[in-house]
Simulated scan of single mutants.
Amino acid sequence: MVEILRRLRINTRVLLLAVVGLAVAALLVLTAVGGFRTQLEAGQRSQAAMQLTGEVMEAKFRTADMAGWQTGYAFDFARRGRARCRTPRVSASSSSPRRQPCAPSTRPSARGR
Rank of each mutant, 00 (worst) to 15 (best):
E3I: 14
L5W: 13
L5M: 12
R6P: 11
R9L: 15
I10Y: 12
N11F: 15
T12E: 13
R13A: 11
V14T: 15
L16H: 14
L16N: 12
A18N: 14
V19Q: 15
V20T: 14
G21V: 09
L22M: 12
L22T: 10
V24H: 05
A25R: 01
A25F: 09
A26H: 03
L28R: 02
T31E: 12
V33Q: 00
G34F: 04
F36N: 01
R37N: 03
R37L: 08
R37E: 03
T38E: 05
T38C: 05
Q39W: 10
Q39Y: 10
E41Q: 12
E41P: 00
A42V: 01
A42G: 02
A42P: 02
A42D: 01
G43W: 01
Q44S: 01
Q44M: 01
Q47I: 08
A48D: 06
M50R: 10
Q51Y: 07
Q51R: 12
L52R: 12
L52M: 05
L52A: 13
L52G: 10
T53F: 09
T53N: 11
G54N: 10
A59G: 06
K60H: 06
K60M: 04
K60F: 06
K60A: 10
F61Q: 07
T63R: 12
T63L: 10
A64Q: 09
D65V: 02
D65M: 05
M66A: 14
M66L: 15
M66N: 12
A67H: 02
A67G: 00
Q70R: 14
G72E: 01
A74N: 07
A74S: 05
A74L: 09
A74T: 09
F75S: 01
F75V: 05
D76P: 12
D76R: 10
F77R: 12
A78L: 08
A78D: 02
A78S: 06
R79N: 06
R80Q: 06
R80G: 00
G81H: 03
G81S: 03
R82D: 00
A83M: 12
R84F: 03
R84P: 00
R86G: 02
R86L: 09
R86I: 08
P88S: 08
R89L: 08
S91L: 14
S91T: 10
S94Q: 07
S95G: 04
S96L: 12
S96R: 15
P97F: 04
P97V: 06
P97R: 07
R98N: 09
C102N: 04
A103H: 03
P104Y: 04
P108F: 03
S109G: 13
A110I: 05
A110F: 04
R111C: 05
R111P: 04
G112D: 07
G112M: 05
R113E: 09
R113P: 06
